[in-house]
Nucleic acid binder design. Structure first.
Lengths: 222, 222
DNA sequence: TCCAAAAATATTGTATACAAAACATAGACC
DNA sequence: GGTCTATGTTTTGTATACAATATTTTTGGA
């Protein structure tokens, strides 16, 4: 099979923009002017247009006809909804990763976790955000569920690029990741699933607070 | 807000191709030759390219650099993985629809169900497939979870266009839909969720059988 | 001074043109 | 006769050109 190592400009541009959004070089709400961007990236507007279409499907960009492309700014509601989705899917991925782990996967997971740990140690919030994204992505890739992986890598990045101010204390997050890695490494599907669920549920609840229009009765039920 | 009713050709082409894939006019594995398609649709290759990019993100099309675009043929494994995802997300959507239903939603749901029922009565398998897709889509839209809706409407169509041979008896499916509609209409979140889960679990299991490489020991455990 | 209309400018949407790669066909050689 | 190579054709990838719409600036009036 000659898959050809060739890669479209559209694909390269797509990845470049994605990266710029994740790192915060492009911020939500910002307009993406075609000519300016294409000049900056050294390509024509044609591949840029295709990249916009990809990004739009991933909720990273909003395409308004005749008005232009904008880095999408998620509403608090949308952010919550996205967490709801992630909360359902990532535990599945963690369980499947635990079931399907092999030697190569073990090494990959350990490497991703080590990188994450290093960023936490360095105390650089921006890099932690990226490393966290990579860690979750690695785990989902190891699930060997290519569909799940594609969906999550499409949408998880939106969260990562929006979760400023929603991040829990680094040490807590690190401890949770550590327990999760341990469960996956020992092939404990059930624990991996529930640990991932717990890990995400807190973030989801924080997002829910932001999304709720009525913050009153803070001592509400359950 | 002037959202402008303008729609670009890329979007129209995207929808046209989607429709052609769902109805079976374009079949999995088929090559999508740019010039032929653009002539047929009466547009240039530029918007076609953007449409391909969108469709690729939805798993409906596979883009192989320098080789062309093909209607994606899902492997039995991918089909199973997609059902696994749907099995996690649609019950959530059904529950949220039950919670958020209003008068307009009630009417919409009843209309979608009636259309589905009519197709079943007519006994036309192809139209049932489309109506089933529309029914599920309506329900997910009614969840008011726009993210969930977007994800599922992106990927559910892949299933619909691949589920030939995987469909359960129409009467059974109809009865399940009917119970589901009743639960949603009376705002019973828990029932809606579990009914949807049961409804999809069977299809998932059928897909699992296809995906398993070892059909041996057919009287296996569980 | 502020607002409205008109002109000028910038930006998008789309078609087309052209180069490079993939594919098909035919001829040469074993 | 079959396989390999060379040539021609098709198809893709990308840039560019041009028309239509949106935005900004200017100008004239109240």
């Amino acid at each position: 099979m000659r898959e050809s190592r060739f890669e479209d400009l559209a694909e390269q541009v797509y990845r470049a923009l994605r990266e710029m959004i994740l790192t915060g070089e492009l911020v939500p709400g910002q307009k993406l002017v075609q000519e300016a961007l294409s000049e900056r990236l050294g390509v024509s507007r044609t591949p840029l247009l295709a990249a916009f279409s990809k990004l739009e499907k991933e909720l990273l960009v909003e395409l308004i006809p005749r008005r232009g492309a904008y880095v999408k700014r998620l509403s608090p509601r949308e952010l919550l909804h996205l967490y709801d989705v992630r909360l359902r899917l990532e535990p599945l991925g963690a369980a499947e990763a635990a079931r399907n782990l092999d030697e190569a996967g073990r090494a990959e997971l350990e490497a991703a976790f080590a990188a994450y740990r290093a960023c936490v140690a360095a105390g650089d919030a921006a890099r932690v955000r990226v490393a966290d994204f990579e860690f979750h992505g690695t785990l989902m890739r190891l699930s060997r569920n290519t569909i799940l992986d594609r969906i999550l890598s499409s949408f998880a990045i939106v969260l990562s690029s929006n979760q400023r101010g929603l991040m829990k204390p680094m040490e807590k997050s690190l401890a949770e990741h550590e327990a999760l890695v341990a469960a996956v490494l020992r092939g404990d599907e059930a624990s991996a699933e529930s640990l991932m669920h717990a890990h995400l549920a807190e973030a989801r609840d924080a997002a829910a607070v932001l999304a709720e229009p009525r913050p009153g009765a803070s001592a509400g039920r359950s």
